[in-house]
Structure formats: C-alpha cells, structure tokens
Design a binder for these strands. Structure first.
Length: 565
RNA sequence: GGGCCCAUAGCUCAGCGGAUAGAGCUCCUGCCUUCUAAGCAGGAUGUCGCAGGUUCGAUUCCUGCUGGGCCCGCCA
C-alpha cells in the first residue's frame, strides 16, 4: 500500500501548509484491515497518534486529514472518519485486483522479500545426540526449524541449516557399553544392566547386528577398544536412522557438525584461552570457570571439570565461536523448552567471545503432549507406543505431522491428538487447505475436459472480476508478503498456517456461491469472463502452493478419496 | 526459593496497543441435476485468570498475585 501511504503523506502536507496541523513530528503511518468489513478495506490511526501533540480532538484531526484526500481516485473509492478517530478507506476494486498480475508474474517467487538483506543466518536445530531414535518433541523442533529456515530464506536471508552432533564425551561411551552389555546377554551371560545405560529395545537390535558382524571380536579385542567400537557403530547407525526419519518428515540439513572436530582441531582449548586472556575464565577448586555473571548470568559456570575434561558447555562455546567465525551475521538455535535455563549462560558466552548477544537467538520449543482420543499418552515409559517420531509418521503421515507441529505457536505447549490428526475434518485443517488447492486444479481439469483453453496472461481484463468476493480475495492475496515479513521477523512460521487456512476458507466460500448463482460460476460460455475467473483461481493456487511449500507440505492436484484412506 | 513459558467461548486455539474480541470442534436450522458436500450459509455461547499501573485507548505493555507446565549438576 505504498500509494496509499503517499496519499496520506500528501494530505498531511496540505494540512500543515494550511495551518490545520502543526506536524512537528511526522508520525508513522500504519494501515490495518478493520475487523468489521463495514469499516472499509483499510484504516489508519494516524489522527489518534497526532491528537495529543496537536492538542485537538482525534476526530477533528481525522476529519481535517480526510478532507484533504481526493476521492474517488485510481486507488480509493471513498474515505470516512469513524469511531474514536480512525480514517477508513474503501479501495478501488480494480486497484486491488492489480496484484494478480504481480502474483502471476512472480509465481513461486511471490512473497519473496529482501527483508533479510542477504544476511547470513544459521539455523541450528534437532541436534539430537545419536543415542536413540527421535521422539515427537524432536519432531516439533525439527519441523519448526526447517520451516523457519524456509521462511527466513523467503524473507531474504541467506540461510544455512545445521545439525550439531555430540559424538564426543561420555555419551558415546555409554552407548557402546549398552550395546556391549546386551551382546554379553545374547551370549548367555547374566548381566546387571545399569540404569544410566540406554534401555531401549533398539540397543538389543544393534547388539545382534554387531554380533553377526563380528562374532568373535568380543573375545579377541580389549574391552575398552570393543566398547568404543560398539559406540561408534551404534552412533553411526542411529544417526543414519535419525537422518532417515528427518527426511521422511521433509527435514534436511546442509551441515552436520561433529563436536569431535572441535576437540581435534583444538578449538575448545582455543576458546578457553580466548576467555582466559580476557579474564573471563578463572580457576577455582580445581576446575576452570567461566565468569558468566559478568554478562548477566546468575552464577558462574564450569568449563573444565576437576577431572581435566571439558564440560558440554565449554564445547558449546567453542562451537558458537566457530559459527560466528564462519561469518554468520545471525545465529539461531532451536532448543527444547527444557534447555531454557541455558539461554542466559549462552548469551553471556556470546558476549564474552566478542559478539552482540542480539545476533544470537535461542528459540525454545515447548513440549508436545501426545494424545489419543483425549487420553494423554505417557512419554516417559518405554512402553509408550507412540513415543518415537517414526511411529507417529507411520501413523499420520508427513503432511499431517508437519501441519500439527506448525499450527500452534512454538512457545505454547502442543496437544497432539493422534485421533484428531487422522480425522479428515476441520479439526485437521491440513486437508482443508490442500483441498482448496486440489479443487482449483479440478476446475482447470474440468475446463480442459469441456474444451476450454486456459491461457493465463497479464492481458486478462481484470475489470470482469466485478464481484465483491473477487476484489476481497485479491486484497487478501496482496497481504501475503506482509505475512511472510511478520512471520520471519518474529520467527513464527505458524502465522503462515493461519493465513493459508483463512485463504482456503475465503476460496471455499467463493467457490460454493457458484452452486447457487450463475455469476459465481467459474466456467461459462463467456470466454473472457471464464479466462478472468480462472486467472484469479490460478493466483489463489499460486499463493496456496507457495505457503504450503514454506510449511513443507504437498500441494496436491487431487485429493485421495476418503474411503481409500 | 529462583528463572522461563502458558492462562481468551463447553473443548482446542488465533489475535498481542485501537472501533461491537475471532476461528474450528460441539449444539441447532438450511443447502448436492450443474466447476470434488473432505464443502457452504445462518444461529447459540465470553467478568479475554485476579488486582493495580502506564495510555486519549489495554485481551494486547509494566508490576504483584493465583493456577498449570518446564528448568535450576564439575550431565549431556
């Protein structure tokens, strides 16, 4: 609405010139779509913002401004003042419809912005340790991170998706030991299986594999060597399965970063030295501490334990230093809500390694409560059938899974009811949105079938789209870029879900009117009119597909019938 | 005890400085000879957790409180 902004600015200018307004400061002009349709297509609150400085009643200010706005024009059909001092506008339908040419021309690039200015952003997400399969909580973070990356990239950032693997430290050791113990069990030995070892059934499967692969290794090799082999084998195997799970979820990463490389290249030590040099690290009680309190953390944190090994946090500092060293302007970590307590120390660390903590965002993803028909499924026990992302994917499928993870704000806990997810009703809106897309394809198929040639071009006469729904649909399509911008700025891909739902709803309503009113039929004997209507449909479809792609969902040309599922 | 998140219709949730607070589910009433009824139209339902404060204006921002979740390790 650049033109409208210019119109307001020039109206303000006239008011100042005639002495109606002082305008010592120019206010920010913001437009919004009124909730009530009777209030027009757009409104602005500038008059209310100005009222105080002008020492005038907001309504009076609004009226003065409104009087200087010429109507009707190519942009506006009417201006009015209402409520406490809103200036409401009715937009010329033809002006609204013009956006269709822009959408059609840009197609899949419609909604692409330079908001990010080409800044390099890294999104690190999932980063689950290869000690067991992904659970549904990981799934939410995975889908969120993936969609966020798509969104930021659409908004003009240069995005790298990264996965950090803890392949060093005690975990891999424990994993190896778990496998080794299960192997001994398989060999008929009675073993005490410690609580801190990995309990899952997948460990036994891996044990069987290793046994088949190297049946005599256990007797030949030293215990330490063999446990370390088991750990490495299991880690790789589990990691591969994680990657497969993610792929089936439509989630991919460009970089897999191994913690071990930090140690090998001496980067952890280098980071420690960096902190020490600046007086941000000190020794106490046989350990080395990070002076995180200096940067606002509530207490100092251990970097190097008294046994001489580094903490996870120390490696994490080195890792984040490495991220910035690689030239990222902005670093986003997607964490589970249980890591909330780590944010202050990480922010402190970012500051200590010489970067602005504002360039580091830790997005916390709240819990997923997995349910079935209203009953909570326990997440803590092994017996929980749907604990893993894999089993959820197998049962509800990729699109439903992703949509459910993206239909809520990431900072609110999510109730994921498998029964609802499987139902094909409005409780599961993913089908509704896809249905809108498919329906449009279906109309086109019908057109072809009845011998209508579909030709989309900017030669289409938009004047023919004279139904109110048509201008309103065009207006809504025109809002898509601002939805992208807002979603990207707030790191909230769920806003796209809501936008798409509303677009689908508007389309369905428009479509259904054709059942009753001939004027609403898309396909008719009037070639030009049919072409214009199909052009609008094409544009709706472009935006639907565009948004679905951001969410990582399919945009089908036809829906499978209910009975087939 | 401290920190973070949540609290909006019977249920699941949007909105996050503006005009009569929205959507879906649920409950009623209609709508398939004609582009997919996985759909549409209409109706019903709210002290926006409580109490203060900032503001011309607060569900939205701030403070306190209450209730629920997560976290507070020389674990990762």
């Amino acid at each position: 609405m650049k033109e409208l902004k210019t119109i307001i600015e020039s109206a303000l200018g006239s008011c100042k010139k005639e002495g109606l307004l002082l305008l010592d400061e120019t206010p920010e002009i913001i437009f919004e779509t009124p909730k009530q349709a009777e209030h027009g297509d757009l409104s602005t609150n500038v008059a209310m913002l100005l009222a105080k400085a002008e020492k005038k009643a907001p309504r009076k200010v609004a009226e003065d401004i409104a009087a200087k706005i010429p109507v009707p024009s190519a942009v506006l059909t009417s201006v009015s003042v209402a409520g406490p001092g809103f200036i409401n506008f009715k937009i010329n339908p033809l002006y609204l419809l013009n956006v269709l040419h822009e959408i059609y021309k840009k197609n899949e690039d419609y909604g692409s912005l330079d908001f990010g200015g080409g800044k390099k952003v890294q999104v690190e997400f999932v980063s689950a340790n290869p000690t067991g399969p992904l659970h549904v909580g990981h799934g939410r973070g995975a889908v969120y991170g993936d969609s966020l990356a798509r969104l930021l990239s659409k908004a003009g950032f240069k995005v790298t998706k990264e996965y950090y693997l803890n392949d060093a430290g005690v975990q891999m050791q424990t994993l190896g030991k778990s496998v080794w113990l299960r192997m001994k069990e398989l060999g008929g030995e009675k073993v005490e299986f410690p609580e801190n070892c990995y309990q899952g059934g997948y460990i036994k499967d891996i044990a069987k594999e290793v046994l088949a692969l190297r049946p005599r290794a256990m007797t030949i090799e030293s215990e330490d060597d063999f446990i370390s082999f088991c750990g490495k084998y299991a880690g790789e195997k589990i990691h591969n399965e994680i990657v497969k799970d993610l792929e089936d979820c439509g989630v991919t990463h460009e970089v897999f970063f191994y913690e071990s490389t930090l140690h090998k290249k001496g980067k952890v030590q280098a980071a420690m030295e960096f902190l020490e040099k600046n007086g941000d690290a000190y020794e106490k009680e046989g350990a080395v501490w990070f002076r995180s309190t200096k940067y606002g953390d509530e207490k100092d944190r251990v970097l190097k334990k008294s046994d001489g090994t580094y903490t996870y946090f120390a490696a994490d500092i080195a890792y984040h230093k490495d991220k910035f060293d690689r030239g990222f302007d902005k670093v986003i970590d997607v964490w589970g809500a249980d890591h909330a307590g780590h944010v202050p120390r990480m922010k402190a660390a970012i500051a200590a390694i010489g970067h602005n903590p504002k360039d580091f965002d830790a997005v916390l993803i709240q819990l997923v409560n997995l349910m079935r028909g209203g009953e909570l499924i326990s997440m803590s026990t092994r017996s929980a059938q749907y604990e893993t992302l894999r089993s959820l994917l197998d049962e509800v499928g990729k699109d439903v899974c992703r949509y459910f993870f993206l239909m809520r704000s990431h900072e609110a806990q999510l109730d994921f009811d498998i029964e609802l997810a499987k139902s094909q009703t409005m409780e599961n809106p993913v089908y509704y949105i896809q249905y809108a897309h498919a329906r449009i394809s279906s109309v086109f198929a019908k057109a072809v079938e009845t011998g209508i040639k579909l030709k989309f071009s900017n030669k289409i006469d938009l004047n023919l789209l004279n139904l109110p729904d048509e201008a309103q649909l065009a207006k809504f399509l025109g809002e898509y870029p601002s939805v992208i911008k807002e979603s990207a700025a707030r790191l909230e891909p769920h806003r796209i879900s809501f936008y798409l739902l509303e677009l689908a709803r508007k389309f369905q309503s428009y479509y259904t009117k054709g059942k009753k009113e001939q004027a609403y039929r898309f396909l008719s004997d009037n070639k030009e009119l049919t072409a214009a209507k199909c052009y609008l449909l094409k544009n709706i479809q472009i935006v639907l597909k565009n948004g679905l792609t951001l969410l990582g969902l399919e945009a089908p040309d036809r829906m499978e019938s209910k009975d087939e599922l």
